[in-house]
Each structure stands twice: as structure tokens, then as C-alpha cells.
């Protein structure tokens, strides 16, 4: 009896603190940065950069309205939704093209010899350099933005998939062949699962680039979107708007990365070292 009563009392103390610590530790740096930002602006007296408080007000107005009541008030959902569509449009297109292509390049020598050099030449070209051409190809509007996001996400996905396929332990091929697994079922049952960790690595990187490139993509003259808001903020010298847009993109990118990580951890339950 005594033991039953004792048991819960003991771990309560030490268990709370580690848990709280795990949640609080990542918040230390952001708060320090906010503090430093605030101090720097106050000390220098600059009027070019707003105080964190002003940005908070802007974010509030951006979300709920009622402060400035201008073109940007209570419009966050419109811009956010437009950007999400473009980010995911480009990202999914990149995944749909990059994963099969990476599998083929990794697995079939002829395809590798045919395509790999071209890809390696195209890869170092900055996506921003494609901006003028993409506007000519797709006109002013969302398609040019989607194309740029696609380009940015495509290369990490295709390269990591290729790497994943090429680095499958040859012993697993030997084990599979001695157990009677060959040809297309070898691809499905060995190559694909063995390459999954690398494919997810590529997806995660590509997804990050997709959010990075949304600002560039929305420089192509679209009226709505988080990138467009930042561009507008720049034109209007509204730094509070620029920083608000940056924060929303950062947060959106972070949250959707957590989704990818959750899927990754679920699919790769067999491989704890691939958990993020």
C-alpha cells in the first residue's frame, strides 16, 4: 500500500522541470534577439527600423484590423493562403518530378549519363537569375512564382533521391536476390524503402527552399501573397510591414516543416537515427 501512495509523489518534482526546460530552451534566443533589437533601436534612435512593439501592433492589425485600417489591415489570411498555394504548388510539382527522376538517375546508368551533367550545370544557377525568363515564359502572375518555387525545390529533391538510391547497401541487394527478390519487386521492396530517408531529406530541404523562394516568386508582379506584401512594404518604406511578412513566412515555414518531420518520423519508425 505504502508503495502505491509513494510512487506518484516522487517523480512529480524532477519530472516537471526537464519538461519545462525542453520547452523554454528554444525560446531563449528569440527573446534575447527581441531584447537586443529593442535596445539597439532605442540607443541609436533610428527611425528606419521600428521597435518590436510597433511590429507587434502591425501584426495585430495585419491579422485583426482596427488599428491602421489601411489596405493591409485584416488581410493576412488572403496573403497567407495565396502564398501557401504557390509554395505547395511548386513544392508538390518539384516532388512529383524530382522523386521519379532521382530514382531513375540513381538506378539506371544510361539515364544518369544522359541527365546528370545537365542537372549539375543547371543547379548552380541561382533561382533569382531565372526571374526574367520565368516572367517571359509564364507572364506576370502566379505561374511564374510557382515555377521559381518549383526550381528551388526541385534540385535538392532530385539530388537527394539519387543519392539515396545509389547508397543502398549492396549487401541488401545480395540478401534480396538470395531470397528470390529481383527486378521490379527489388525496386519496390528494397530500393524504395532504403532510399526513403534520403528522399525525405530532399523533401525537407526542398520544402525549405520553397518558402525561401516565395518572396522572389512574388516579385513577379502578383498583387497578393506574403512575398508581395514584403515587396509592397519595401516600396512604401513600411519596415514594420516588411518585418511582419518575414515573421509570418518564418512561422509558416517552421510549422509546415514540423508536419514533414512528423510524417518522416512516422514513415521512418524503423530508423531512429533518421528522426528529426
Amino acid at each position: 500500500m505504502e508503495r502505491v501512495i509513494d510512487a506518484p509523489a516522487r517523480p512529480a518534482g524532477p519530472r516537471f522541470w526537464p519538461k519545462a526546460k525542453r520547452w523554454l530552451t528554444p525560446l531563449i534566443v528569440p527573446f534575447a534577439l527581441l531584447l537586443a533589437w529593442d535596445l539597439c533601436v532605442r540607443m541609436t534612435g533610428t527611425r528606419l527600423i521600428p521597435l518590436p512593439r510597433d511590429v507587434a501592433i502591425m501584426l495585430y492589425d495585419f491579422t485583426f484590423g482596427g488599428v491602421y485600417d489601411d489596405a493591409f489591415s485584416k488581410s493576412i489570411h488572403i496573403h497567407f493562403w495565396k502564398s501557401v498555394q504557390r509554395v505547395y504548388g511548386g513544392f508538390f510539382a518539384a516532388a512529383a518530378a524530382g522523386i521519379p527522376l532521382g530514382l531513375l538517375i540513381g538506378r539506371i546508368r544510361a539515364v544518369r549519363e544522359l541527365l546528370d551533367p545537365t542537372l549539375q550545370i543547371l543547379r548552380p544557377v541561382p533561382v533569382t537569375a531565372w526571374l526574367p525568363l520565368s516572367m517571359i515564359f509564364f507572364g506576370l502572375g502566379p505561374n511564374a512564382a510557382i515555377f521559381l518555387v518549383f526550381l528551388g525545390a526541385f534540385f535538392p529533391i532530385v539530388l537527394n533521391t539519387t543519392f539515396g538510391v545509389r547508397s543502398v547497401d549492396y549487401r541488401l541487394f545480395e540478401a534480396a536476390s538470395m531470397l528470390g527478390c529481383n527486378g521490379s519487386s527489388l525496386f519496390r521492396q528494397v530500393v524504395l524503402p532504403a532510399a526513403t530517408p534520403s528522399i525525405f531529406n530532399g523533401l525537407r530541404l526542398g520544402h525549405g527552399f520553397a518558402w525561401i523562394l516565395i518572396v522572389v516568386g512574388e516579385m513577379t508582379g502578383v498583387p497578393e501573397g506574403l512575398g508581395a506584401v514584403i515587396m509592397d512594404g519595401r516600396t512604401l518604406s513600411r519596415t514594420d510591414l516588411v518585418i511582419s511578412g518575414m515573421m509570418v513566412i518564418g512561422l509558416a515555414g517552421f510549422l509546415s516543416d514540423r508536419v514533414i518531420v512528423a510524417i518522416n518520423n512516422r514513415l521512418l519508425a524503423w530508423s531512429p537515427q533518421h528522426h528529426a
Partner: peptide, 30 residues
Amino acid sequence: PGPERGMVFQDFALFPWLTVKENIAFGPKQ
């Protein structure tokens, strides 16, 4: 290679994405 000759490797060469019973059933599944 063929199923009538089964190799046991020093480094196991199990399929890491399959559970114990799935690894064991891999050959019959083929």
C-alpha cells in the same frame, strides 16, 4: 543466387525497414 542456398552475413544484412516477422517472411513473400 537462389533460395536453396541461404547466406547469413557477419553484418546481418537485415532489411531495417521490416520488423522481425516481416524480415523472416520476406523470402516466402517473394
